[in-house]
Amino acid sequence: MLLNKYSFTEKKDTRSGFGAGLSELGKSNPNVVALCADLTGSLKMDAFQKSHPERFFQIGIAEANMMGIAAGLTIGGKIPFTGTFANFSTGRVYDQIRQSIAYSHKNVKICASHAGLTLGEDGATHQILEDIGLMKMLPGMVVINPCDYNQTKAATISIAEYHGPVYLRFGRPSVGNFTPADQKFVIGKAVQLNEGKDVTIIATGHLVWKAIEAADALEKKGISVDLINIHTIKPLDEEAILKSVAKTKCVVTAEEHQMNGGLGDSVAQLLARKHPAPQEFVAVNDSFGESGTPDDLMKKYGLESVNIIAAAEKVLKRK
């Protein structure tokens, strides 16, 4: 079954995958520079800072300035990676990103940690659940939300090769590290985790492992699941999704984000245009988060494998 196919030996945080990827880039690409707004440890950027102090810019608590400086650094051929929490990487600096980075098509990589509810105890002020929506609305912005340490590391390395603005979203908690370390990361290319015929489950970020658990449970009940890991929300792998839904005729999307503006939204828009099908959404439903442990929050806000299972059973009845 699926849980045998996708096992892991250790749990690791995706932000550490970012730190490891950035560190490798430091060695392999002299044009890569890093900027941080007083969260170097939280973003796991310390290794880069230590190895390449001349290419590391401590900006202080001034995220708007950080985005502008990053845009300026591209003029002269640098590839800046900015690091701060997802909340301060997006909502706080939306206009700076919009004008100086996206509209100006600058080669800036906006790297955002502590996204979503799993930031935990700090509460709703810091738990942004709108960032995917904000970023995907910007013309030309690539939006990536990898699922585990290995995928985050591979994504970090991969985006340095792509010319243009990228939003890379990752998180704080330790999660199962099941992606093979040698799996190539291709921007915009979905990872098919399981072939099935009854229901499509499309998950992103921390919800991918929960979707694997859900698919495993569903298969035990005799429901065959076509399971897709969408690490790139924009550009969306339309081909993979349409091929799957053509087969299963129904879909569940799962993400640690508002239902409005998230992955589910993008999938629904695609299906409405090209292949209408029943869809259920596992996402936060128009609500802010709150303080609590990551696990308690994911339970309270309905982002667990049981919620994916229930959504799959519901959508199967709507076929």
């Binding site: 520079v33 810019f57 300035n65 400086i69 300026g72 003029i75 004008q99 100086s100």
Partner: peptide
Amino acid sequence: GQGMSVAIGAALAKKLN
């Protein structure tokens, strides 16, 4: 309000280069 930050970034790139 954004141009000074951009100019600083470009100035830093010149120093690196």
